[in-house]
């Protein structure tokens, strides 16, 4: 995630901005210029509701270097009420308890640091709703 790309992705990462197709209502996250389901080109920007359900999940035991201190941690594909899907870490819980069907909220968190002196990259992570 080099800085210029991170900056371009701020609207989707910070505010969960997604695109709703005016032709078929499909919500894609992040927004696309062309609808992946009907190839429509009229896309309206919407903010995803910051909650959803776990569709599928896994536990990472051997993470990339930037996430070494966090392992083991859960990763999941989460579906929001709009039907958009995103892959996120699921935190503030035992990783093994993250299973399909779990209700989660999406919270604004620090995702990673670009090395010791680089920028801080923020986005959303899922947290179980009790």
């Amino acid at each position: 995630m080099p800085s210029p790309r991170y900056t371009r992705e701020i609207p989707s990462r910070y505010r969960l901005e997604a695109g709703r197709c005016k032709g078929c209502d499909k919500v894609a996250y992040p927004a696309r210029r062309v609808c992946p389901s009907c190839r429509g080109k009229e896309i309206q920007m919407v903010n995803l509701t910051p909650k959803g359900k776990v569709v599928t999940s896994t536990v990472i035991h051997v993470p990339p270097d930037d996430f070494l201190m966090e392992a083991p941690y859960a990763m999941a594909i989460v579906e929001t009420p709009e039907g958009a899907r995103l892959m996120t870490q699921v935190v503030d819980c035992e990783p093994s308890t993250v299973l399909p069907g779990m209700d989660v909220s999406l919270e604004f968190r620090l995702i990673r640091k670009e090395g010791k002196g680089g920028i801080l990259c923020y986005g959303h992570k899922a947290v179980p709703v009790f």
Binding site: M69, E70, Q89, V91, E107, F108, R109, L110, Y122
Partner: peptide
């Protein structure tokens, strides 16, 4: 705070 919580993330949660 967890690894992923700092003054900015707390401010966003409280601000929302």
């Amino acid at each position: 705070p967890g690894f992923d919580e700092d003054t900015i993330t707390i401010s966003v949660a409280a601000g929302r």
